[in-house]
Amino acid sequence: MAEERWRTLMIAAQDGDASAYRRLLLELGPWLRSYYARRLPAAMVDDLAQEVLLTVHAKRHTYDPTKPFGPWIAVIARYKWIDRLRAMKDSLNDELEDEIAAPDNGEAAHCAYTLDALMSRLKPAQANAIRLVKIEGLSVKEAAARLGQTIALVKVNIHRGLRQLSELAQAEHHEF
């Protein structure tokens, strides 16, 4: 149904009917978004859908009015998708430049390193409980299930572990 309507609109667009063309492009938008939503990360979907509209505009004379419209738009969408995948693959092979504009994560990295060092000095049961609940955000119940401990034991391990971490951190601070 839609395909036959799109075909009629495309033929009118080839004749220069702007309102038919506008309607066609607006109807193609949701179809393209849904096509790419199953194939690409969400952030790229809208961008590529717009790119296809630009391609449809530039290559509209390659549509043969005697043939169905569906295969034509599908092959263009597919071609652009493969093109994008190829570009993504190429960008994975890009060499790192010496100077990259990026936020300074030194402080966060230093904190993560210090925390890791302190956690390694806790008992494994305490460190695991803290990591799952306080860092990864699991509930106490989920952590208990994963660690094979009772809920009460997980709570005790977290409590004692945090207290020991605090003491270790203060001791480190005094050493410096």
Binding site: Q14, A18, A49, H61
Partner: peptide, 21 residues
């Protein structure tokens, strides 16, 4: 670019074309 804005621009830019034969 906003999707509707792009559609408007493309529609404004439309000219008749002769299909490839």
């Amino acid at each position: 670019m906003n999707f509707e804005l792009l559609v408007d621009r493309l529609a404004d830019d439309l000219e008749p074309v002769r299909p490839r034969r």
